[in-house]
Amino acid sequence: MSNDADISRRDFVRGRLLRTVRAMAGVPTPPPAPQRAAWVPLPIRRPPGAVPEARFLAECTRCNACIQACPVGAITVAPMRFRHAAGTPMIDQATAACVMCPDTPCISACEPGVLRKDRPLKMGTAWVDRSNCLAHRGTLCTTCSERCPVPGALRVDGGKPAIQDATCTGCGVCAQVCPAPINAIAILPLPDRPA
């Protein structure tokens, strides 16, 4: 719990700084945001094998070793909009996907041990939007299933992709390669990683 206290203190300090800067620049200060009762984990997509979010935030040293280890450059630093998670490693679904390297170099590179080989590699779950999926709309397309790096996670049933929730790791490759005019695959974040 002390971690949570740290975070609120940091938020508090940052808030006051912002108010001071605004005052100096002559920008009106917005009314204070309502106080949140408890800390809620942000839906942020971590590299595979991450420990529960609270522990991750507390123990990740922001050393960027996993970012450098990733062979496809999928891991990035979380930007400021992620508030208290800013600066930690994440995978931005809009621009990149984890390719599920068999030897998980990001986990091997993690010194503080917030990415662990004994943790499930699950980062989320893919979901096919049937109204936008070309295969579900009569066009021959199998791109997502061909590129899925997890055997059995994306089956083609009668020419149409079907996600197997239990096997899918939410790596995001399918969403990345989907050639539909409106991307037909969303990666649903995990509500929270199991403890």
């Binding site: 009569g138 066009t139 021959l140 397309c141 050639p179 539909a180 005019p181």
Partner: peptide, 9 residues
């Protein structure tokens, strides 16, 4: 009315 993957783009 149908198009292929390329045609839509």
């Amino acid at each position: 009315g149908l198009l292929c993957v390329k045609g839509y783009h």
